Computed example of a mutant assay.
Amino acid sequence: MDQSKMKIEFNDNEIILYKKLSIIDYLVLDFSEILARNNIRYVLFSRYVSILFGNNETNEEKEERKDIDILIQNISFEKFLKLWLEIERSYECKNTGDPIDAYNAYLKNHHAVRIAKKDNQIPEFRIKIVKNEMDRFTLKYRKKIILGDRNLFISPLEMQIPYNLFKGSPKDIDDARYLYKLSREKLNITMMERFLGELKIPKESIDAYLKI
């Protein structure tokens, strides 16, 4: 994406993006709004965050299956079933067709429940529930992204950048550098350094990739 055509406003807990929405943006917004309608607190993390902010995909990545990683609060089966009944109208679960199995064997065991639109198998939405303190922090301090009259929630960039470095693939490192360069003047560096430490990112990697 041409960054000259995208404008960003950073506020306290909100980021306003002025950009032309892509097909994947619309699909993510639609699915996120289903979660919101069902009063399920969620946060988008990993690869999509960088895509949302305009980091172009390589030709190789365009050929790969896209996964949209979503972390949600711990929910009861009753709440999950209500969500299931709504999404099964237009989506299908790739793990299983049984909501009890999806909840007990996958979600509660911290395995991703993989959801895709029936008429469009890309992207897959990979839903997981919170597992540890870092997950709970990510969900608690999520950032609201405003896209015109619609919105969604992403992980704090102070968490997302260290997480990308932790994953460590060339693509993830590129995402970390891109997000840091884009937002460094607005980042809480103390918070980011905390998570760099918790994820045990080597100092030489931080110096090489971020140059804090």
Rank of each mutant, 00 (worst) to 15 (best):
107 L>P: 01
155 S>V: 07
64 E>F: 12
144 K>Q: 10
149 D>F: 04
165 L>Q: 12
27 L>D: 13
178 Y>W: 04
95 N>G: 11
72 I>P: 12
34 I>G: 05
46 S>H: 07
143 K>V: 08
160 Q>Y: 05
164 N>E: 13
86 E>W: 02
138 T>H: 01
141 Y>R: 12
184 R>Q: 12
27 L>Q: 15
77 F>K: 04
42 Y>H: 10
146 I>K: 15
183 S>R: 08
134 M>G: 09
66 K>W: 07
172 D>P: 03
105 A>I: 11
176 A>E: 03
3 Q>T: 05
109 N>M: 08
106 Y>N: 06
144 K>A: 07
136 R>L: 09
206 I>Y: 03
13 N>I: 05
106 Y>S: 01
173 I>S: 02
80 F>R: 02
89 R>P: 00
145 I>H: 08
40 I>S: 06
23 I>G: 14
94 K>V: 11
83 L>R: 07
58 T>G: 12
42 Y>S: 00
89 R>Q: 11
98 D>P: 11
195 F>Y: 14
195 F>M: 00
159 M>I: 14
60 E>F: 10
7 K>T: 11
168 G>N: 05
115 I>T: 07
175 D>K: 01
47 R>Q: 10
5 K>R: 08
30 D>K: 15
44 L>V: 10
139 L>E: 09
1 M>T: 10
209 Y>I: 11
172 D>V: 01
200 K>V: 00
15 I>S: 12
207 D>F: 14
130 V>H: 06
102 A>W: 04
148 G>P: 00
75 I>D: 03
187 L>G: 05
79 K>Y: 01
145 I>R: 09
196 L>F: 03
32 S>T: 10
5 K>F: 03
166 F>K: 15
102 A>T: 08
201 I>E: 04
168 G>S: 02
81 L>E: 12
30 D>Y: 10
25 D>K: 07
39 N>A: 02
70 I>Y: 10
119 D>K: 09
25 D>P: 12
78 E>M: 05
48 Y>C: 04
172 D>C: 03
150 R>A: 04
144 K>P: 00
23 I>T: 15
1 M>F: 09
208 A>P: 06
162 P>T: 08
144 K>T: 09
49 V>T: 11
7 K>L: 09
106 Y>D: 01
123 P>K: 12
69 D>K: 00
94 K>W: 05
34 I>K: 13
202 P>L: 05
9 E>C: 01
65 R>I: 12
115 I>H: 03
105 A>R: 15
166 F>R: 13
204 E>Y: 13
41 R>S: 08
71 L>N: 02
170 P>A: 05
17 L>Y: 07
35 L>S: 04
113 V>A: 01
178 Y>N: 06
99 P>N: 09
192 M>Q: 07
13 N>R: 14
180 Y>L: 02
99 P>Q: 03
57 E>C: 08
190 T>S: 15
191 M>N: 09
